[in-house]
Computed example of a mutant assay.
Amino acid sequence: MVTTIPDTLRAFFLPLVSHLRERGWQVDGMAKGISSNLECVQAFDRVWDVEWSRNPLDPKNLIAAPAQIRHALSQEQYDLVNVSTPVAAFVTRYALNNLRKQEKVKVIYTAQGFHFYKGGSLYKNAIFLGLEKIAGPWTDYLVVVNREDESAAKRYGLISPERVRYIPGTGLNLDRFNPSAISEAEIVGVRQELGLGSENPLFLSVAEFIPRKRPGDILKAFAKLGRPQVHLALAGNGLIFEEMQQLASELGIQKQVHFLGLRRDIPVLMCASVATLIASSQEGLPNCVMESLCMEIPVIGTDIRGTRDLLENGNGLLVKLGDINGIASAMTWILDHPDEAKQMGKRGRENMINYDVPHILKLYEALYAETALLLI
């Protein structure tokens, strides 16, 4: 399994790694700096460091990394290579194309969200679509996690349609994200930590502080809400964390907004909230939306791929990208319709069964078995 950085393997693929190893597979991992990631070192049979940049247009990616990838294959004689994330996916497929032609290895590409998408920059879309078209012939199977990407893969002919597989994510732990597993004492504890009383509804955002997550839209919408008793918590860190703190001050809502940083108690925070918010311009299949729905907490999200897949069945409220007033109106609806909002959240958990870890593991295991047959 190959990704650009080890955090992607750790966050998304370790349940699949564990499942396969329990069934007798040898599963190795490759990423930049993976040997320093203890969780990955313990999870895989063997790990391989590789030198590449996260910038997909950096020419250095095609200098050292391909030789390192081919060396790893020559050492271990892998049957299947599952790649993900833009740099790792492109460079690894490039490095292994000749070996694929010789039927010595099969390559599966899991696209966690193409970097070209509806509403994206025309310039960036053209570049990333062009790269995917180049790499398509180097791929045996293409896994997509949302319906927009599935349609795009077939429409642009990135790979033969019969080799495109829709698998919705890498699996969600329904035991961890289960409202029945959260005690009332835990909810009271986190609300006391934030200084909230019973009269203080809480909205929650769980996201990295980076531009494409658009946390500023959430803050501006919250300011428009104009309800001083309502609070907002934002869990996460990132490049624009301090900028968003400054924005909250400029909007005059700093006493109602809690910047929590990285948290390990996301399920509890969700249970303490009336709804979660996601204002992103780009997603593949957002875990925070699935997690919230599993906790029976409704979601207010932008009408983009991935988020749309999860909310279009009445599991939440969709608003147009960048629509500050729309987000504020959705928050108002949640506050003014508490019973309907709770029912919305309950429907969400019912619809998450197709996203849980056991279901996803079966889909991947079937795909790997199908792919392995091509080597016989």
Rank of each mutant, 00 (worst) to 15 (best):
I34D: 07
R93L: 10
I127C: 11
I353G: 02
P86K: 02
E365K: 13
R264C: 04
F128N: 04
R212Y: 14
R23T: 08
L361V: 14
P211W: 08
F44L: 09
I5M: 13
L16Y: 01
A328G: 07
E150N: 03
A272G: 05
W52C: 05
E162G: 02
V274C: 15
C40R: 12
K106Y: 11
I266R: 05
V83S: 02
H337S: 12
E350L: 08
I376Q: 13
V164I: 09
I5E: 12
S121A: 14
G316Q: 05
Q42T: 00
R46N: 12
K342H: 13
T332D: 14
A95V: 12
Y78G: 09
G119Y: 08
V257K: 01
D323A: 05
M244S: 06
L375A: 14
L99Q: 13
M331L: 15
K104T: 08
W333E: 15
A235F: 13
S35R: 11
D45E: 14
V299P: 00
A72P: 00
F241D: 00
R347K: 14
F222K: 03
H258M: 03
N61V: 14
S84Q: 01
V87C: 10
K101V: 10
F209I: 08
A64C: 13
A152T: 09
G189T: 08
C288Q: 10
L317A: 10
S84P: 01
E243T: 12
N287R: 10
R54Q: 14
T170N: 10
F209N: 07
F12D: 06
D149P: 11
I297W: 00
L142D: 00
G119I: 06
F203S: 05
P6G: 07
Y368A: 03
Q102T: 10
A152R: 00
Y109L: 05
I376C: 04
A221T: 09
G29W: 04
R155Q: 11
L122N: 14
G216W: 02
S36C: 02
A233K: 06
L158N: 02
N315L: 06
T302N: 10
A275S: 09
E370L: 15
W48C: 01
G238K: 03
S281N: 02
K101Y: 04
P358D: 09
S74F: 08
E340F: 07
V268C: 07
L293F: 12
V27P: 04
E22A: 14
V274S: 13
A67I: 15
G306D: 07
Y156R: 10
R308P: 06
P358R: 13
R70Y: 01
V268Y: 02
K32W: 05
N351F: 09
V87N: 00
L96S: 10
Y156M: 07
F177H: 07
D149T: 10
K362D: 15
C40D: 05
